[in-house]
Design a protein around this nucleic acid. Sequence first.
DNA 1: CAAGAACGAAAAATCGATTTATCGAATGGA
DNA 2: TCCATTCGATAAATCGATTTTTCGTTCTTG
Lengths: 358, 358
Amino acid sequence: MAQQEARQRRPSIHDVASHAGVSAATVSKVLAGVTTVKPENAQRVFDAVERLGYRVDPLASDMRRAKRRIIGAIMPEFESEFFGSMVTELEGLAEQRGYTLVAASSRESEAREKEILARMHDWRVAGVVLAPVRNEHGPAAAFMKAHGMTGVLIDRVLSDDAFDTVSADSFAASAEVARMLIGNGHSHILVIGLAEQAATVRARLEGFRSQALALNPSVRIDVITSEVSVAPLRSSLRDYFGRGERPTAVYSLLLKGTLVALSEFRRRGWHCPDDISLVGFDDAEWMQVTWPAIAAVVQPVRQIASEAMNLLFRRVEGDAGPPTARLEPCQVLMRESVGSPGSGPHSGGGDRQQPPLS
Amino acid sequence: MAQQEARQRRPSIHDVASHAGVSAATVSKVLAGVTTVKPENAQRVFDAVERLGYRVDPLASDMRRAKRRIIGAIMPEFESEFFGSMVTELEGLAEQRGYTLVAASSRESEAREKEILARMHDWRVAGVVLAPVRNEHGPAAAFMKAHGMTGVLIDRVLSDDAFDTVSADSFAASAEVARMLIGNGHSHILVIGLAEQAATVRARLEGFRSQALALNPSVRIDVITSEVSVAPLRSSLRDYFGRGERPTAVYSLLLKGTLVALSEFRRRGWHCPDDISLVGFDDAEWMQVTWPAIAAVVQPVRQIASEAMNLLFRRVEGDAGPPTARLEPCQVLMRESVGSPGSGPHSGGGDRQQPPLS
DNA sequence: CAAGAACGAAAAATCGATTTATCGAATGGA
DNA sequence: TCCATTCGATAAATCGATTTTTCGTTCTTG
């Protein structure tokens, strides 16, 4: 073990060099694995490294290269399971390749997104994994393009003419949700979402609508979206039910919508699935322990992260082929929140379901 | 706006210098705000900066200083709301001071925690905000001590003889939960938790127990903890109820425990609060929309982050006073999951509650 | 045996800033 | 008028690595 007093200056490559009786260049080569060094000298270098507890300063090491061994990650937020595990995955993958991941939250603001990107450009990051706030056409992607940055766009994107994109196959997953609901006999379905995040949400809506209509041309699909935030969505939903609309199922295109739907159900005293069925895009840990468990579309976080990093490093290493647009398949989890219409009274009564013991 | 072709080498301080007709040293001084520069030259520098779109390279800029303008943050995980928003807050605060935050997830592993710390030491970070996996006595804190790193410990810590600590006042919050439950007439309460995270969980347990006993000396408090992970906790809980134990309330010392309790309740067909009351340490967005809404202790994330950063920068700037141990007050949210014992039948039946409309 | 290739390692240049040392010109006082 | 300050700015050193260039040996080979 290295004996190094606390608060003391850390040993530099020159300290190692003098201890080993060689030049700094030789130390650098030994540590880089160059083979044109006499074995005896290499051993002396390793010994000195061990004795001094020397470790390369990544900052100094990166100085001379145009692309530093840093990957930037920009997420709309860190508070959700989805982006939280996305960052965890990306961090691990970057680390595996000897890169440092610097993650930042755009806090759902495109202006901030661009500022962060500019700062990452200042750092001369090798590449960026950007989960844009809205879609691939925002100012951030434009900035990346204008400055020749290499990057991959994920999540709220469909395809781009300059960057590789990776996202969940929202269209296919939504089609499966449609099959599930139509198959259960639902013929009046409400879809809720936030239109801001155009790219994915639109795909989710279209995937659902097209499949639902294909299976039952007379199905009635109502859509409630909000441009701005979740608050208007809540009041629109309240108005909608207040007008006496009674769909038998709700499909929420995003997690926050699922929460809004649930809270509105509970305000009105409705139960899933007796009074109304519910499916949400995006899964969360709590959804399987609530009563009832909420059916959900599970996004393939791991695959998205892994594919994004593969593509990114291919570009970092110089690949200049045309950009690709990948869609990773989702899993649709059927849970108790989905039933057949009319299986329960629409208001009041209705014993709670009693799941079998053990 | 700067006219800069894509993919072109970024302008360096020397480019600015030659465009402005001065030396690089002068440019550096102007940008650092030194006043001993002729106003005319300063203006020429600003003009050149503007024209070239020059921005300082933070990496190069940090080379010469012993402490780089980087703050490291190590969290046990990124998947939860708590640590997610903690990182968001820390990032904002670091940014305000012109520092870059590099966040990493120890994934609940002390070994990994130490490795990450070593890597951050390699980067010569100015300071570290460490949320240790277990408590302040882990190998990570020891590493920091041994290498003279400056840092602040947060969340799962009580106090330390080398570092400032900041955490939620678990003891006081748990005492308030005790007042709430005892006040509602509960006299047989189950407390569940994971003992691994000794520091805080123990405080939560003791705070609850002491206050509960003070209010009702004959109260029966059962405790189920697991050393390792959440799985044993689940089976212990199953066994406990299987033996016929029927506490009237459960207090979970951490979020995962709340989920385990809920899922066990639902497996047995029990309802809150008719069959059993539930309070959890740590709040989450979904807890207020479930049926019933779950009473919870809200941790003061913002205050913890802000206080941690204040203390950290005080140390970075050289303060060598004795370490402080701060406790930030929590808020206890009473919700529907808590009722009085015996208000509902203990098994079977029991109409669901119908909250009033609007 | 001498010219040339091959080898291994040291010296020097480089990355992009900051900081210290140096230097010339203008200013001031004697 | 001359020397000592002061001022403003430049040259040079520095941070800690990597990479290129240079250089001295040893090994080939005609």
